[in-house]
Design a protein around this nucleic acid. Structure first.
Lengths: 120, 120
DNA sequence: CCTCGACGGTATCCATTGGTAACTGGCTAC
DNA sequence: GTAGCCAGTTACCAATGGATACCGTCGAGG
């Protein structure tokens, strides 16, 4: 049925990656870094309310996955800069496709929800 | 910075939709229904281990969002059929873009993870 | 007759996780 | 001196995800 490395197998790495991409904060980090490297606080402030803990987790995961790099400048005050890797940058395209879809279908979905709730 | 209805605002409906799409099970349901309507148990068995509760939640949400329809045939034994709406079907494209990306980058990501863990 | 299984789910419980609030350390500016 | 910045970390807690068990209704089988 599903020919290529199928996402239905929980052990399939594709599934894991799908989970990463599906992660709310990961998407927002990619979009934030789209126009250039940013520091921790810049990311935190740019993205709406993110708990620093969660942001750290997200960034570490992304670093591990090779989507971003983390550069530490041992200055005072400390400076840490996050940059999209080429692979991370290649995610912008797919993400744009999704966000475009979402934006064009917002009205239809909102309407569907209203219609559904009508009968509830 | 972000021109179009920006996903950084937690109240932006785009964000909500992004969360939906990011949902593991939603994606798998769409892919499952790609080749035609299915019944509850067919979905449950087709998708790897899903708790029925979670599948129900997912399906209800998708129905509310107008991505699928739910038809009940008052037979014995009961029969409930889920079908992709045109809007739901239009999600296949974007999802394919993502899964394609995931599949092509699986090796690179796996390698990145291994390299990262080397130093841990 | 009595039980068993199919079907499309609930109900109940537990583990993991997402998120909040407070704190750290080193230095600088007031 | 003390207040604040930076990049987090460390409790702690509510919510969510998920596994398991169960429900009513019916026909089939023994």
């Amino acid at each position: 049925m599903v020919t290529k490395g199928n996402a239905f197998d929980p052990n399939c790495p594709t599934r894991t990656i799908l989970d990463r991409i599906g992660d709310k904060w990961t998407v927002l980090v990619v979009l934030s870094l789209r126009s250039g490297p940013l520091r921790f606080t810049e990311l935190r402030d740019g993205i709406g309310r993110v708990a620093p803990k969660v942001l750290t987790q997200t960034l570490r995961r992304m670093e591990r996955d090779g989507l971003i790099t983390r550069e530490i400048f041992p200055e005072i005050p400390p400076r840490v800069v996050y940059t999209l890797t080429p692979m991370g940058g290649s995610l912008i395209e797919p993400i744009s496709v999704i966000t475009d879809w979402a934006e064009t279908h917002v009205p239809a979905i909102t309407k569907a929800q209203a219609a559904y709730d009508e009968f509830a």
